[in-house]
């Protein structure tokens, strides 16, 4: 199963933010969207999730146009994970995770809903917190609640907006490994907006680099993320180095154009 983004153009008023963006996400893949602030990453994520209608172009799964799908079917297809979770007062962790079952429930939860939510909480390691109120949790734990909710939703494709930006190093790894888990064996696919080039190098199967609303480059992370692309897109000098687990980016002090 493939999520195909084809010729997407998007904007706010007269300001065009995305121009003719095309790429695809296959099941079993993590596809990362990279680019500096204002390059259109979030707009792209919101467009794929149906929160914004594209000005031109289509988003399809197989040959089915997502914009023609009804809401419930859509929510079984695409699961959105926000950057930050602003929790409500007196909401327990299990209530928050069960919300992910919305596409399958009407007023009360079924046995399947319980099974899915329990599995999701165990997978991200928050079952022990089930009865706690969310706003008593740390930022890392909250992000795990969000991931568990997305897992409980059990969509075909996960769409994540900078899921690691508020997390410490260890929790970044937990979040990325959870995402890896989500897609193994072709259970689902993931499209993720990322700031951290090293996480992108380490975890992505494919990257799409945006610059000023255009696709600057796309393809294998080792091909796309290099000293030239980082200079062109982010405006910084860097060095790509070889570590024990693969390549990583070392950003240099001098800024492009001011050397």
């Amino acid at each position: 199963m493939t999520l195909t983004i084809e010729g997407i153009t998007q904007g706010y008023g007269s300001n065009i933010v995305l121009k003719d963006i095309s790429f695809e996400v296959k099941k079993g893949q993590i596809v990362s969207v990279l680019g500096p602030n204002g390059s259109g990453k979030s707009t792209l994520i919101r467009t794929v999730c149906g929160m914004l209608k594209p000005r031109a172009g289509t988003i399809c799964v197989e040959d089915k146009d997502l914009s023609s799908m009804d809401r419930k079917d859509f929510s079984k297809m695409i699961g959105y994970v926000p950057q930050k979770y602003v929790p409500s007062d007196y909401m327990t962790v299990f209530d928050a995770v069960l919300i992910g079952r919305a596409p399958y429930m009407s007023w009360s939860y079924s046995e399947n809903d319980m099974i899915a939510a329990e599995e999701a909480m165990e997978k991200v390691g928050i079952f022990e917190l089930a009865e706690r109120y969310i706003n008593d949790l740390s930022g890392g734990q909250m992000q795990k609640v969000v991931l568990a909710r997305a897992l409980a939703q059990d969509p075909q494709f996960y769409v994540l907006d900078e899921p690691t930006s508020a997390l410490d190093l260890k929790n970044q790894m937990v979040a990325m490994n959870t995402m890896r888990d989500m897609v193994t064996d072709g259970k689902a696919g993931a499209l993720v907006a990322l700031h951290d080039l090293n996480l992108a190098l380490h975890f992505s199967d494919c990257v799409v680099m945006l610059k000023d609303g255009n696709v600057y480059a796309k393809g294998d992370p080792y091909d796309v993320i290099n000293e030239k692309s980082i200079r062109d897109v982010y405006g910084v000098e860097s060095e790509i180095m070889e570590g024990r687990e693969g390549r990583f980016v070392h950003v240099l002090e001098k800024i492009n154009g001011s050397q």
Binding site: R46, C49, G50, M51, R71, K72, F74, S75, I78, G79, Y80, P82, Y85, V86, A96, I99, G100, A102, P103, R149, Q153, V159
Partner: peptide, 10 residues
Amino acid sequence: AGDDVAHSLG
């Protein structure tokens, strides 16, 4: 869960 997440949950 927030307007955006609610939207994506149908």
